[in-house]
Amino acid sequence: MIRVDDVTKDYGAFRAVDGISLEIRQGEILGLLGPNGAGKTTTLKMLTGYFPPTSGEIYYDDVPVSTQPLEIKKRIGYLPESAPLYPNMLVYDFLCYTADVRGIPKASRLGRIKEMASLCSLTDIMDKPIGELSKGLKQRVGLAYAMISDPEILVLDEPTSGLDPNQIVEIRKIIRDIGETRTIIFSTHILSEAEATCDRIAIVHKGKIVADGTTDAIRSNGNGRSTLRMDLKGATPQEAKQLLSGVNGVTDVAVSEKKENRCEVSVGFTKGQDAREAVYGAVKATDWVLMNFAMEANSLETIFRNLTKET
């Protein structure tokens, strides 16, 4: 178990992390979510023992990082942001070097490297200098580097940045597979990613944790509004607005006009009240055509935006 206890980090006069407390259980996948400059990377760097917090302490199984940095570094695999690896080294040499420093015995080294190469699909680029690789490939080398010693804790700083959609799906799958037995902490600013991979999400804003919990818990703790999106053909915006505002349970209606005599309507209603039937009934009574009708459950995105709004 990892316990982050009221950790603060100052860069000169700037407070990057401001009193963060977290508990990460074994085998949990935690997503640190937040806008740019929220303090995600700083938090991760402190977790890896790269630098100590200004105040507060991080405990791994109740052992403070500052007392045994070496032991704790052995247990952590870390992928730094944008994978800053040695450009002159060949991928194979780099993985050998990492394996050696991480104390993998010579006998099992090659097997381990091969395993990583197939897991991160690096087999074709093992003999290329890292500097010549594209960003996505570098990122995958970085993942292999982080995972080579099969560490019990993986700290990944934006693991999917720079990858194409296929690779993103692959990496997420890898994270989920590994996460069944390992503890994973990763940062991202992509919400759907956190939602798809994490057991738990912590939203960081301006160095503070503004929400922490499972995706469902965060969603239900949101402002409790749901939105219904519709695409109506044959209605003018004024008519649509007038009609839908009168439906029971609807709190607000926003209409925007589209091409071909169509308009897009989003209807908001309060938590616990499902106005879909009433809305549908109202629309059915007119001669409009309903092109699209989708419920947007209080999306994480809106919650995220509300929580991290600049004030």
Partner: peptide, 14 residues
Amino acid sequence: AMGSFEVVMTLPVT
């Protein structure tokens, strides 16, 4: 300059 310092420092070395 390259940021790879972070890579060395987070390996289990002093």
